[in-house]
Design a protein around this nucleic acid. Structure first.
Length: 261
DNA sequence: AATTCAGACAACCGCTTGCTG
DNA sequence: GCAGCAAGCGGTTGTCTGAAT
């Protein structure tokens, strides 16, 4: 049905304009109204939905609240190491196309990923006094941090399999190796099969990253060689149990249609 | 205990895209 | 082809919370 044929709950445009628009944080009452309305009418025609739910919010605001907070398929809690690894990898190839990146992380929103990147990764870039979009930073990301994170995922997987030989879980014990990360949250201890990380920074700022001349190691054509970790092979691939992080074309995301974890 | 500050994340804003008549 | 609209997207801002003083 064409949403423009809706009669917006018998209100004229003028009447709708006179309704004082509510902004700011959502209340649980508003959430409930929105959920109820969506359960009856489905998540579409947001302007109409907002009116019929009796909300003094824009359709846009309702859509965002649903997609970023209320949607039942959303994951809660900190990003796992695997998810961080995937975000960094995808960002190094796709850039700031957050929705595209989010498509590869079920249950995570573009907003969440964008916030993660801005607060953690851009903070690191600031510390290094590098532009986050510079080839220098992208190179360090691709050939140092990504393999380092991959190592951590592997290490945590190995550690947990030794600690809990009867399960396939790779959850961490209290602390991750190498980075001195904080304790995991209670949810991850109680059943997550994925490595959880603390809200603290997960990207180290080691001296070998600072000291290495990344531009010298940069080649426009052919393989790019930098100070890789053991998990990263020379041809620009890094490998990980259950994860095959190929270097992919800027525009091609077909390769990501496979399952990673 | 009160205040300040920084980090995290929810929400908003403005622009773009895609669809329909 | 054009106009009007909803939805999608990315950048930015606002708010909350916990740590530090």
């Amino acid at each position: 049905m064409d949403p423009r044929r809706f009669s917006y709950a018998s209100q004229t445009v003028e009447e709708m304009m006179m309704i004082e628009e509510r902004k700011g944080p959502w209340t649980s009452e508003e959430d409930l109204k929105l959920i109820n309305c969506i359960s009856m009418r489905g998540p579409a025609h947001w302007t109409y939905l907002a009116r019929s739910a009796g909300l003094k919010r824009t359709g846009k605001s309702c859509r965002l609240r649903w997609l970023n907070y209320l949607h039942p398929d959303l994951k809660r809690g900190n990003l796992t190491l695997q998810e961080q690894l995937l975000i960094l990898h995808l960002h190094s190839h796709l850039g700031n196309r957050w929705s595209k990146i989010a498509q590869h992380l079920p249950g995570r929103t573009d907003n969440e990923i964008k916030n993660y990147f801005r607060t953690r990764v851009q903070k690191l870039a600031k510390q290094l006094k590098w532009d986050v979009n510079s080839s220098q930073f992208r190179h360090a990301m691709r050939y140092y941090w990504l393999p380092t994170l991959a190592d951590q995922v592997q290490a945590s997987s190995a550690q947990s399999s030794m600690a809990q030989p009867t399960t396939s879980s790779n959850q961490f014990t209290d602390y991750l190796p190498l980075t001195g990360l904080g304790p995991v949250d209670s949810d991850s201890k109680s059943g997550s099969l994925e490595a959880q990380v603390s809200p603290a920074s997960d990207l180290t700022c080691p001296c070998d990253v600072m000291g290495y001349n990344w531009m010298d190691g940069f080649q426009q054509d052919g393989p790019i060689i930098g100070p890789m970790s053991p998990a990263c092979s020379i041809d620009g691939y890094y490998e990980l149990e259950g994860l095959d992080g190929h270097i992919l074309d800027e525009e091609s995301s077909d390769i990501w249609s496979t399952t990673y974890f």
